[in-house]
Nucleic acid binder design. Structure first.
Length: 831
RNA sequence: GCCGGGAUGGUGGAACUGGUAGACACAAGAGACUUAAAAUCUCUCGGAGAGUGAUCUCCGUGCGGGUUCGACUCCCGCUCCCGGCACCA
């Protein structure tokens, strides 16, 4: 007895290692590029990690979800691409380098080795032959290659710009990297600086990026909405106002050209040339009061940007604009609520129909002229602005038109008279891609005194980053590296200098999903045939924190690669990710796990104690994928308890001796449960990967198998059938455990490569059905009857049932509703 | 302010297309086994009330209405929470 216990004990560590070695040896996790492979391709991708050196629970959750998807699809007969790699450039490596006095490359590669070991312990079915690290020249050379193409097309350009500068990070930031006025990495307030920087013209793709969002039906609406918001398209008109005593014009953008005749003043940003000019040279000696006001405004826009309750303030510039239709002169103000960075930095103000303008007009005694009449309601224009659509009044030749029509006719009139045009304005700005950092991909440009900024020719790519430099905390060590810095101009051959900035690391993560399709390709960035086979990604899984940054850039890059001729729309699609699953965070005690809070749970410790499968099962069971997951040690033990309970079920089956015939009805009932479970689990997998629901169903079936009594006849076979089905359905979730169970049960194939179980329709069929009986919509009992019984039979049976019948006594039946196989509702009233 | 999403037992969460609310699990409690503990197994577990008892009745999915034979689910009006965006003209 004791001996048997020992042999059957589940030794997680040893068993998991055993299967990991077998999987690796048999190559079952590799994606096949063989054209003869008739399995349909499926591309499952998780967001690749930054190699910080330690796997955390967020990673574990991400990779368990991805692995469950990948393994499920494999069992369904797909040829699955499930790759992994490293987002290996970035600031933490430089910080670590300063701290330890070793170059970032060393730290990075060491971390990668460490994390690879941790990942392998989890037993995730990656195709390791496709592993990539973005800091490797074989990877970033293609990014450099594409960039030079973008330069040639004018899609990459260098410009002096007021940029967001983060002092501690010693670099500029993209708009997307500034969160609430502070740096997304170090939370330091961002300062404005004027620098010459490289940009990529994402605005040129704004329309396509917006339009293609409509096709992303496999994305969470939330993410689509965030992107739509970020792109921020608004349609309206650009209008040129004249300036009194001047040939210049004051150009503005408005979404409400229908309110044009209601303009009673103009407002410009503090940084607008008109405001600056008025402050400096008005009446030769300038206007100190105005200058002070403008200074105040510029301070506000930076340091106190987060001050919410900013009062609307303005100051007249002492100049007047000329209305393009009426010729009326209206005063021009500088106003603190007009932003230089949006539109033209100037607005036409219509106090009657805009809330801000209304407040401003009241404060400074500017007339309010109503030009839109509400259709439904009474409106007192002096007490509040009317901002909806209506019918035009006080608008000369445009009177009587509806707002929508007037927008068109007024815009057309302006265009005919050379005073305006239709215009579309985006919130999205061009992508600032240069960073004053060392540990990044060098921007492939050579600056020549004569030839200007010259793209590095293809034959000189990659521009390799020297990996032996030691950052000190100040400027990038590249600025000190003469060997890197000095180079001959590729065009004229004269001594020139390399660009010393490196790329934003979002550049690397924007195209890695495509590189995985042909990761060792030395001829091109991607292989068109491989793209045709795999792209776009069928299922992408990662954190919602990348909803705007990474996912927007990746969509953009995909289109850039397509337009660079690397693949066609037919081959690689217009979008990189067909379906997106945004997983929730892993919480402990209600808040995000972090070192500073001291509430982290080390995945390694969990694996040491229970094995990887328990960790996997818990993370998949405790919450639906898209919701936050509260870590719960007791819950982890519960997950382990279930696995061990199932393991003991196999002992129990082993101990049953083949014997007498079993009760046929009971066997049928068990087989029905088994096949209902297959149906439920498959459905749960298909409906948004509801693994938590799938696991619950498997637990339920396990409970049913446990209590099932058999004499060793047909019931034993059914019991085995049930156990086998559970093992197969557990395989994507707890692969080591399933393989070990499969071996015990004598599976022909390793469990993770077994075919996904099919529903036996015959097993589901039943001669009898149980109906819930309601009276007045309230459950009053149940009846069991032949499945083809009609309503009259059901009703008669219900009436004869004591607990139901008592609700019908003295009542007159007015209506009977029968939902076949489910429910009978009897509607009565007092007789 | 605008745009999304959400609110179900002590807890995490189930509930197909409008058809038995609370599956499954955690926690808690009781019992069995054990010298004891752990492990395991069995049972109870939304609230209130009635009954010696098996049971029975009423209420119950954030709040208020509505549609329907029937509503966690659909419609109208709110409250609160979470995420995103924001003087965007």
């Amino acid at each position: 007895m004791a001996e048997r216990f020992e042999t059957r004990r589940y030794e997680a560590q040893q068993i998991e290692q055993k299967w990991q070695h077998r999987w690796e040896a048999s190559g079952i996790d590799a994606a096949s590029d063989d054209a003869q492979d008739k399995r349909p391709p499926y591309y499952c991708l998780v967001m690749f990690p930054y190699p910080s050196g330690n796997l955390h629970m967020g990673h574990v959750r991400n990779y368990c979800l991805g692995d469950a998807v990948a393994r499920y699809k494999r069992m369904q007969g797909f040829n699955v691409l499930h790759p992994i790699g490293w987002d290996a450039f970035g600031l933490p490596a430089e910080n670590a380098a300063i701290k330890h006095g070793r170059p970032p490359a060393e730290w990075t590669y060491h971390n990668i080795d460490q994390m690879r070991v941790q990942l392998k312990r989890l037993g995730v079915s990656y195709d390791w032959k496709r592993e990539i690290a973005t800091c490797h020249p074989d990877y970033y050379r293609w990014e450099q290659w594409l960039f030079t193409r973008l330069m040639q097309k004018g899609l990459a350009y260098q410009q002096n710009a007021e940029v967001n500068w983060c002092d501690p990070c010693h670099t500029v930031l993209a708009n997307e990297q500034v969160v609430d006025g502070v740096c997304w990495r170090c939370d330091t307030p961002v300062v404005r600086k004027n620098l010459k920087q490289w940009f990529i013209r994402i605005t040129q793709y704004a329309d396509e990026l917006l339009a293609d969002l409509d096709g992303l039906s496999g994305w969470p609406e939330k993410v689509v909405g965030m992107q739509r918001n970020w792109i921020g398209k608004s349609t309206g008109a650009e209008v040129s106002f004249g300036l009194e005593d001047s040939d210049d014009t004051l150009d503005i953008f408005t979404t409400r050209p229908d309110t044009l005749m209601g303009v009673t003043y103009m407002a410009v940003a503090a940084g607008h040339p008109l405001a600056q000019k008025a402050a400096n040279d008005q009446a030769a000696e300038g206007n100190p009061e105005l200058a002070a006001f403008l200074k105040e405004c510029s301070r506000m826009s930076t340091k106190e940007a987060d001050v919410e309750t900013m009062e609307k303030k303005g100051m007249a510039l002492g100049i007047h604009a000329v209305h393009p239709v009426s010729g009326e002169k209206v005063p021009v103000y500088a106003a603190n609520f007009v932003l230089m960075g949006y539109g033209t930095g100037a607005v036409m103000s219509v106090p009657a129909h805009d809330e801000r303008d209304h407040a401003f007009a009241l404060k400074y005694g500017i007339p309010i002229r109503q030009v839109i009449r509400p259709l439904q309601v009474e409106w007192d224009i002096d007490s509040a602005a009317f901002t909806e659509a209506g019918v035009l009044i006080n608008s000369a030749q445009f009177d009587g038109q509806a707002s929508a029509d007037a927008k068109a006719t007024i815009t057309a009139w302006l265009a005919e008279n050379g005073k305006g045009r239709e215009r579309v304005q985006f919130r999205l700005r061009d992508w600032l891609v240069s960073r004053q950092r060392y540990w990044g991909a060098p921007i492939p440009v050579i600056h020549c005194a004569d030839c200007g900024a010259v793209p590095v020719p293809d034959e000189q790519l990659p521009v390799e980053l020297p990996t032996d430099l030691q950052p000190t905390g100040g400027a990038s060590p590249l600025t000190e590296c003469a060997a890197f810095r000095h180079v001959d101009c590729p065009e004229c051959g004269k001594p020139a200098e390399r660009e010393l900035d490196t790329f934003d690391t979002f550049m690397e993560s924007s195209w890695y999903m495509n590189r995985y399709t042909s990761p060792r390709n030395t001829d091109a960035m991607v292989d068109a045939d491989a793209m045709q086979r795999w792209a776009p990604v069928d299922q992408y899984i990662g954190g919602v924190e990348h909803a705007v940054l990474h996912l927007l850039y990746a969509r953009f890059y995909h289109k850039l690669m397509r337009d660079a001729g690397l693949f066609t729309s037919e081959q690689g699609g217009d979008e990189p990710f067909r379906n997106l699953l945004t997983q929730g965070m892993v919480l402990k005690d209600g808040s995000k796990m972090s070192k500073s809070k001291g509430n982290t749970v080390d995945p390694n410790a969990i694996i040491d104690r229970f094995g990887a499968d328990t960790a996997r099962l818990f993370t998949l069971f405790a919450a639906p994928p898209e919701k936050d997951l509260e870590w719960n040690d007791a819950g982890v033990e519960g997950a382990n308890r279930f696995l061990m309970r199932f393991w003991r079920l196999l002992d129990r089956i082993d101990d049953i001796q083949v014997g007498d015939a079993d009760d046929t009805a009971a066997v049928q009932g068990l087989r029905r449960s088994i096949h209902q479970t297959i149906q439920r689990v498959t459905h749960a997998f298909e409906q948004g990967f509801a693994f938590n629901v799938a696991i619950a169903a498997l637990m339920e079936l396990t409970n049913a198998l446990y209590v099932f009594e058999t004499k060793g006849g047909a019931g034993l076979a059914a019991l085995k059938e049930g156990a086998e089905a559970v093992v197969k359905m557990l395989a994507p979730l707890v692969p080591h455990f399933a393989c070990e169970c499969g071996e015990r049960l004598g599976f022909a194939d390793v469990a993770v490569m077994a075919a996904w179980p099919a529903v036996d329709a015959a097993a589901l069929a039943s001669d009898e059905v149980t109906l819930v009986v309601q009276v007045q919509g309230k459950k009053r009992g149940e009846i069991t009857l032949p499945k083809d019984a009609d309503q009259d039979v059901a009703l008669a049976l219900a009436q004869s049932d004591a607990s139901i019948g008592k609700w019908l006594d003295g009542m007159q039946i007015v209506k009977v509703v029968l939902v076949p196989g489910r429910l009978l509702n009897i509607v009565v009233r007092p007789a």
